[in-house]
Amino acid sequence: MKYSQNRPKISYEKKHVQAWLDSLKIALLEQDAITAYELTQNLPFIFITETVPTTESTQNEAIESANIQATSNQKNHIQDDNLIEYLQMAQELITQSIALLESKKNETLLQLDRIRQAKKFLL
C-alpha cells in the first residue's frame, strides 16, 4: 500500500482561540515581549496531517467517505470562514509580535553596547 497524499486539517475551539487572540492583543498593547513570545509558541490551533492510501480499494472507500463528508462540509462552511478569519488575525498578531521582539532585541543590543563602552572608559 502506498501513501502519497497528506491532507492537513486544523482543529480549534472557538473560545480557546478567542482567549488566545485577546491575550496576545493585551501583551502587544502592554509591550510585553515575554508574554507575546510565549503565546506565539503555543498556538491555539491543532494541525493534523492525514495520510491517504493510494490503492484502488482504499481510494473507493475514500471517495465514499468524501461523499458523506460533503454534506457535513456544507455545514462547516461557516466554521471554515471563521477559521480563515482566526488564522488571518493570528498571522497579523504574530507579525506584530515579531516586530516587538526585534525592537526589544535592538534595545538590548544598544544597552549592551553602552555597557561595553562604559566598561572600556572605566578600565
Rank of each mutant, 00 (worst) to 15 (best):
E85T: 12
E85F: 09
A27G: 04
Q117M: 10
A62Q: 15
R116T: 06
P53M: 11
I94Q: 09
N82A: 05
N67Y: 15
L93I: 05
I26D: 05
K120W: 04
L24E: 04
K25I: 01
L24W: 07
K104P: 00
N67C: 13
N82Y: 01
Q41M: 10
L24G: 04
A27Q: 03
I98T: 13
L123D: 09
L24N: 06
T54Q: 14
Q74H: 03
F47W: 04
L29E: 10
S65I: 07
E56Y: 09
N42W: 02
L123C: 08
E92Y: 14
Q91E: 13
A70V: 08
Q41T: 08
A70I: 01
I98N: 09
L100I: 03
S23M: 00
K120Y: 02
I98C: 04
T35Y: 04
Y37I: 00
I48W: 08
W20H: 05
D32V: 01
K2A: 08
A66H: 10
P53N: 10
S97Q: 06
Q41Y: 02
A19E: 06
T49Q: 13
K2V: 08
Q88H: 11
L109Q: 08
E38T: 01
E30P: 01
L28T: 00
L21Y: 00
T35K: 08
K75E: 14
Q79G: 05
N73V: 07
F47N: 13
A36E: 05
Q79N: 13
A33H: 05
D80L: 14
K120G: 00
E107Y: 02
E38M: 06
E38Y: 01
L101D: 00
S65M: 07
T55I: 09
I84W: 15
A99E: 14
Q41A: 05
I10Y: 02
M89Y: 05
T71C: 03
I68G: 06
D80E: 14
W20A: 02
Y86Q: 01
Y3W: 14
Y86S: 04
Y12I: 08
Q74L: 13
L29F: 01
T35S: 15
Y3S: 11
S72I: 12
L29K: 11
D113L: 14
N106L: 09
E92H: 11
S72N: 06
N67F: 15
I68N: 10
Q41S: 07
T54C: 07
N76D: 15
T71E: 12
E107N: 04
I115Q: 00
L43D: 04
I48C: 06
Q31M: 08
Q79Y: 07
V17T: 09
I94N: 04
D22P: 00
A62I: 14
